[in-house]
């Protein structure tokens, strides 16, 4: 069942004049993922290939990268299903490059953590879902796995280094929906900025690319509507509470 697939992998080490691509031949099985192939390259061909990964099942959000020009989680991207004789692997865009396929996530988390949205939702996964005997309540985590794909595909993040970005803005809207004790006026003040929610141009690339159904663009538009509504209410009732 083995089938050899050519991988063209983006390479860059600190101090290199420019990035280049290395080519590797990898034996693949029908269920081989891009992450499997990259770890196989590390194991048998080039241990210096740097990549970031952890869980192998789309929960940790660390193996986001560009495969054949599209941002995906490498761990759940099947090589054969790509249907190309050659697979091009590149790091995410719109983030500082650290090494090979690894980008600096600090700017992402500086924005995301500024919003500081709680991790556990108030709402459950499916309100009427069946639970195991003895389980009274199911908790649901927020959908966002903090992978950075939304920022990589965003045309605004591509030109505005100050843009708050889809993930952080979606998180802000989740705080608006379920404040869970957070300082909502403060969160809204971060989002209500020329580099915040108003900077989005509604390309919806983030929503299309998100591997975890966060729908950042939809949240950004809901947040805009809420902020516009708040402004209109303040216009007609100046003492109305901020953002409510």
């Amino acid at each position: 069942m083995g089938e050899t697939v050519t991988f063209r992998v983006h390479r860059y080490k600190q101090g290199d004049a420019a990035p280049h691509q290395d080519t590797f031949q990898v034996e693949t099985e029908p269920r081989t993922t891009v992450l499997d192939a990259l770890t196989a390259i590390r194991r048998t061909q080039d241990p210096s290939l740097t990549l970031r990964h952890s869980c192998f099942h789309a929960s940790c959000g660390t193996c986001a990268m560009k495969v054949n020009g599209r941002e995906v989680l490498a761990c759940v991207t099947n090589v054969r299903e790509l249907g190309t004789a050659e697979v091009v692997v590149e790091p995410l865009e719109n983030a500082p490059l650290v090494s090979d396929l690894v980008v600096e996530m600090a700017p992402f988390f500086a924005r995301y953590n500024a919003i500081d949205r709680p991790l556990v939702r108030e709402s459950e996964l499916v309100p009427g879902a069946q639970r195991a005997p003895g389980v009274e309540r199911a908790l649901r985590y927020e959908d966002c796995i903090e992978c950075g794909i939304c920022v990589s595909v965003c045309p605004i993040a591509g030109t505005d280094p100050d843009y708050l970005g889809p993930a952080a803005l979606a998180a802000a809207d989740r705080v608006r929906e379920e404040p869970r004790g957070r300082d909502l006026p403060f969160v809204l003040s971060l989002a209500d900025d020329p580099h915040g929610v108003w900077r989005c141009h509604a390309a919806f690339e983030c929503t299309e690319a998100c591997p975890s159904n966060v729908d950042p663009a939809g949240h950004i538009m809901q947040l805009r509507r809420a902020l516009i509504g708040g402004r209109l209410r303040r216009l007609f009732a100046p003492r109305a509470e901020v953002g409510r």
Partner: peptide, 17 residues
């Protein structure tokens, strides 16, 4: 540092359009 431009090629920029 949050607004420092990333190294060459990692921000799409206008030409990225």
């Amino acid at each position: 540092p949050a607004r420092q431009a990333p190294p060459r090629g990692r921000r799409r920029g206008v030409l990225g359009w």
